[in-house]
Amino acid sequence: MHGPAMSDWLLMTLCGVTGAYCLLRMRSGTEEERRTARAEAVMGFGMAAMAAPAAVFPPPVWGWAVYVVLFGGAALRALWFARRKGHHLHHLVGSLAMVYMALAMAPGSSAAAHSVPGAHRGHQMAQVSSGVPLLTGMLLVYYAAYVLRSGTRLIPVAATGPAEGPTGGGWGARPELALACRLTMGIAMFAMLLTL
């Protein structure tokens, strides 16, 4: 386990642990918090599955279609709930980014990307000077900004959390851990987009 394989294992483990913590968060909080935790658990486990080292866990040929359907459905769900709560717009971007990555990493990806209406636009757009497709570059900028914003929000929460005492409800009700999970998934998404 050296080089890229090690980073695949670490990314898979990190996303899997984050997804598991999101499942724990589903046991407490308001309905909106539980809904958000469910969406984040799906994203965490999906990212873990997508990051699994292909040499050890070769994905089935139809596996990428499952990702497209799963995260396409998650995108529609996030779009539906985004009318009430703005954070679901982030889930929408994340789900669409997962669809994009699944199409880009699928066997015969250029044919797969052109077969889905609207998905080929990212491939046909102008490319930035490094050869990175414009859509990938835009997603990288979005996730870099998201990670920086989440990181700055985590610092004050972590600094004031212990002074307030336990919040009750156990590990699932800790807002700083939920924010750390979002930060972790943002970093993981950024890392996955870099591989495209």
Rank of each mutant, 00 (worst) to 15 (best):
S150A: 15
A106T: 04
V69N: 02
V128A: 12
Q124P: 01
P60L: 12
P133I: 08
L148F: 13
H120E: 10
G72K: 01
P133M: 10
L140G: 06
H88C: 06
W80F: 09
G73L: 03
A144H: 07
A159V: 14
Q124G: 11
V68R: 13
A126S: 12
A126N: 09
A82I: 03
F57E: 00
G63S: 15
V157Y: 10
Y143P: 09
G73C: 10
V93G: 06
A145V: 07
A112W: 15
P58R: 11
R153Y: 09
L134F: 13
A144M: 12
R153N: 10
L134T: 08
L89R: 12
R153M: 10
Y100L: 01
V69Y: 04
L134K: 07
A159T: 13
K85D: 08
V61Y: 12
L70F: 06
R121M: 13
I155R: 06
L134G: 07
G137E: 08
A112P: 09
L134I: 06
S129N: 11
A82E: 00
V147G: 07
L89A: 09
L96M: 07
V66Q: 07
M101E: 03
H114P: 01
L70S: 09
H123T: 13
W64F: 15
P58L: 00
H87K: 11
V157G: 08
G118E: 06
R149K: 11
A82Y: 06
L92I: 00
P53N: 00
G94H: 09
V61H: 12
M47S: 05
F71R: 04
V68H: 06
A74C: 06
H87V: 14
M98G: 03
A102P: 01
L79N: 03
A74Y: 04
A106R: 09
L96S: 02
F71Q: 01
V99S: 04
H114M: 15
H91I: 01
S129C: 11
H123S: 15
A112C: 14
P117T: 01
P117F: 00
S115N: 01
W80V: 04
G137Q: 10
W64G: 08
A97E: 02
P59C: 10
A54F: 00
A78E: 06
A52V: 02
L139H: 02
G122V: 02
G72Y: 04
A126D: 13
V56I: 12
L134W: 12
R84T: 05
L154F: 12
M125L: 15
P59T: 06
R153K: 10
A52N: 00
Q127A: 14
R149I: 12
V128C: 02
G63F: 13
V68S: 05
A55N: 01
A54R: 09
A74R: 05
R149E: 10
G137P: 00
L96R: 01
A49D: 07
P53M: 03
H120I: 07
P156D: 13
P156S: 09
